[in-house]
Design a binder for these strands. Structure first.
Length: 570
RNA sequence: UGCCCGAUGGUGUAAUUGGCAACACGUCUGACUCUGAAUCAGAAAAGUCCAGGUUCGAACCCUGGUCGGGCAACCA
């Protein structure tokens, strides 16, 4: 654990951070002496996909609460549906949780509890609380009624416990086909809460389970498994998202039937899930993007997955800060991605070295600089961290600058180059734009002609002269060509998330991934590959995305014109 | 026309649980800058969905509305 983490934990323990409503509930429980002040949470993903930024919020919450109260937090894989779950996902989830900076106290699988759950099911059958239904899924659905109309009881509802037990054991023994029989809880077909209308507890699935293989052919449903798993693990606070709110009465009902030690009864509390603007987080849709090759895998840098964001250069700390900033509440929310991007910039600015690279080069010729001369300019690697030192960058008569760092007719607050203007080439000289060559047909700038002031080299007497702005540059003679993948937002507009069936792929940004040849400084010669990300206001480079261990570089500004400039004119 | 939940500046969250509505992001203005659009200084912006009620006092409690979300998978 880093010092920073420690401080955060201590601060939280001392109650310096703001308290959310869940902490208020826990404080109340502690005051009442519930669980003897013990706090034990859990993060229970289904291993059917990769974790995304929404999960990161949930992880920070459950693990964060445990840290704050010096309690425990378990990682539990909710693997009750073998048709969707895979070991690949289990591994990625563990990796992502660790990367986020959390270590779970216990690791479990719901499948570890299949025996116990089965035993409890038999008990419920014997108690007359559960029965085997022979009807089809369609028939059961039809009998369920609607939110405004009560359901009707199954003709099999009143079988004797003995018969139910025999049938249930036969189900387990594999005597029936999928869909032929199910086990249902006997609650109330007229309940106002649809989830209480004799919900399914077990269904038959002749499927290989990623952990129990073919041991079972009946699998428990989420509602039957979750509360009991919490109970088994002695979870005190079971935190989940809002859509499970209507499940809580059922969660409690099952516990009512089975809890023997009230002391260990867990409590479910719901919070609002994260919604991010311009971001699709539905696992189903992310899976579709992967399967249909719209992206290059779950960890494609454009994906909102934890692994994608890792490749994109987000730091664990920035994600935790983000989670902390958005807080926890029960009301639906949509967070602007700008807030997330702000969190990375804040973090990256402190750690990432700066380099020169020109994505869209225009040649600048310094007409009064001696031909063939080269100077080594000393550049600070990170203005926010002296310990990162400096490097030498060669300078010569012809340099590339960014195309959008020059405007023929600059608006009021444009501090970069324009005809007749002086700007500083960062770490080198002040230059003045004397002339430029424009393609008459396309209006494209082809070359810019400048003169330099030899007395203004960084560190020299005249170096402090005020100029409009500062530009990054790369010497033409020394520039390296770098194949760069430029990543931008995956979705341009608000694509429908969740279960809406509109084709969200229509909202994909066709230019979310572009390849270009940029001019970069020689120091990047050993970079294996460069991925460039547009974080709204800074360009960010990830060196060597394969190992993900190498550099975090900030390419000196690659910001497009601000809207407000064009609005205001000059 | 059922049940459950929610509603506080543009956005998101607070408000010592009934006691001066605060913080962050964003926006705007100015300053500064060898690019961090960072930083610094300042400003605008809600009177807490509406209508009643209780109270010395209500964002908070009560009643009735309005609006928004969720719930009818052999998914989780």
């Amino acid at each position: 654990m880093s010092d920073k983490d420690k401080n955060a934990a201590e601060e939280a323990a001392e109650g310096k951070s703001k308290t959310n409503f869940i902490e208020a509930i826990i404080n109340e429980e502690i005051k009442e002496g519930k669980h003897e002040g013990r706090v034990h949470t859990r993060f229970p993903p289904e291993p059917n996909g990769y974790l995304h930024i929404g999960h990161a919020k949930a992880i920070c919450l459950s693990f964060g609460i445990a840290q704050k109260y010096k309690g425990k937090c378990n990682l539990r894989f909710d693997d009750t549906n073998p048709s969707k779950e895979e070991t690949e996902y289990v591994e990625s989830i563990k990796e992502d949780v660790k990367w986020l900076g959390f270590q779970w106290d216990e690791e479990h699988f719901t499948s570890d509890y299949f025996d116990q759950l089965y035993e409890w099911a038999e008990k419920m059958i014997l108690d007359g609380k559960a029965y085997v239904d022979d009807q089809s899924a369609e028939e059961i659905a039809a009998q369920k009624g609607t939110p405004t109309k009560a359901g009707i009881e199954s003709p099999y509802r009143n079988r004797t416990p003995e018969e139910n037990l025999r049938l249930f054991r036969d189900m387990r023994a594999g005597k029936y086909k999928e869909g032929e029989k199910v086990l249902r809880a006997k609650i109330d077909m007229a309940a106002a809460n649809m989830h209480l209308r004799d919900p399914l507890m077990y269904r038959i699935m002749h499927k290989e389970h990623h952990r129990t293989a073919d041991k079972w052919c009946i699998y428990p449903m989420y509602d039957y498994a979750h509360g009991q798993s919490d109970y088994i693990e002695k979870i005190t606070n079971s935190l989940c998202t809002l859509e499970f709110e209507v499940h809580r009465p059922l969660y409690d009902w099952f516990l009512d039937q089975l809890v023997e030690d009230e002391h260990y009864r867990p409590r479910q509390t719901e919070f609002a899930r994260l919604n991010l603007s311009y971001t699709v987080m539905s696992k189903r849709k992310l899976l579709q993007l992967v399967k249909e090759n719209y992206v290059n895998g779950w960890d494609d840098p454009r994906m909102p997955t934890v692994s994608g964001m890792r490749r994109r250069g987000y730091t664990p700390g920035s994600l935790r800060n983000f989670a902390d900033t958005i807080g926890i509440a029960k009301r639906d929310n949509v967070i602007d991605v700008a807030l997330l991007e702000h969190a990375v910039r804040e973090d990256l600015n402190k750690v990432a070295p700066r380099v020169f690279g020109v994505l869209d080069p225009v040649k600048v010729i310094i007409t009064n600089y001696p031909e063939g001369q080269t100077e080594e300019m000393e550049l600070i690697n990170n203005p926010e961290d002296e310990s990162q030192g400096s490097r030498k960058v060669p300078f010569s008569r012809e340099v590339f600058i960014e195309r959008n760092d020059f405007m023929v007719d600059p608006p009021r607050k444009f501090f970069r180059m324009g005809p007749g203007r002086e700007v500083r080439l960062k770490g080198a000289y002040i230059v003045k734009c004397e002339d430029y060559k424009m393609n008459a047909e396309t209006g494209k700038i082809e070359e810019i002609y400048c003169t330099y002031d030899p007395d203004t080299k960084s560190g020299m007497s005249q170096a402090n002269r005020k100029v409009k702005g500062t530009l990054h540059w790369v010497s033409c003679a020394h520039a390296l060509d770098a194949e760069i993948r430029i990543y931008d937002r995956l979705f341009m507009d608000e694509a429908p998330d969740g279960h809406e069936d509109k084709d969200f792929k229509e909202f994909l940004n066709p230019e979310s991934l572009q390849k270009t040849t940029a001019k970069v400084e020689p120091a990047l010669a050993n970079a294996k590959a460069l991925d460039h990300f547009q974080f709204q206001r800074i360009g960010y480079f990830n060196l060597d995305p394969d190992t993900q261990k190498e550099g975090r570089l900030i390419f000196n500004r690659t910001v497009p014109l601000r809207d407000s400039w064009s609005k205001k004119g000059k």
